[in-house]
């Protein structure tokens, strides 16, 4: 458990939010800073899309994000270097992706 933005927010051992409803854009910014990323509007577009799909129960994959119409796969790698799907999921406050593609 860790406190960020002065509220008790629970994370998994790997740093994923346990409850996606506790997510706020401010929290995303703080988590992003830890990854060395400064969030832009484009980042937030991706995060919001991920949250929306997660709520719909879609199993997320690189391919699906690439087909989202928001970013292509190359842009996704550029926005979230070192772990496009994992880092974006972490910053979106959704569970660790369970996809192999």
């Amino acid at each position: 458990m860790e406190t960020l933005v002065n509220t008790a927010i629970e994370f998994t051992a790997e740093g994923y939010l346990k409850n996606m409803d506790q997510w706020t854009p401010e929290l995303a910014r703080e988590l992003a800073a830890k990854e060395g990323i400064t969030l832009t509007d484009k980042h937030f577009e991706v995060l919001n899309w991920l949250r929306e799909k997660q709520k719909e129960g879609v199993q997320l994959s690189m391919r699906k994000v690439g087909a989202s119409g928001i970013v292509d796969i190359k842009q996704l790698y550029a926005l979230f270097p070192g772990g496009p799907l994992k880092i974006s999921s972490k910053l979106a406050g959704i569970p660790k992706p369970a996809s192999c593609v």
């Binding site: 199993q59 690189m62 391919r63 699906k64 690439g66 292509d72 796969i73 190359k74 790698y77 593609v101």
Partner: peptide, 17 residues
């Protein structure tokens, strides 16, 4: 299972560097 065709897969790999 959302596994792309070979050519699309290869494009994904290139896009990832």
């Amino acid at each position: 299972l959302d596994i792309p065709h070979v050519t699309e897969f290869i494009q994904m790999i290139e896009a990832g560097g």
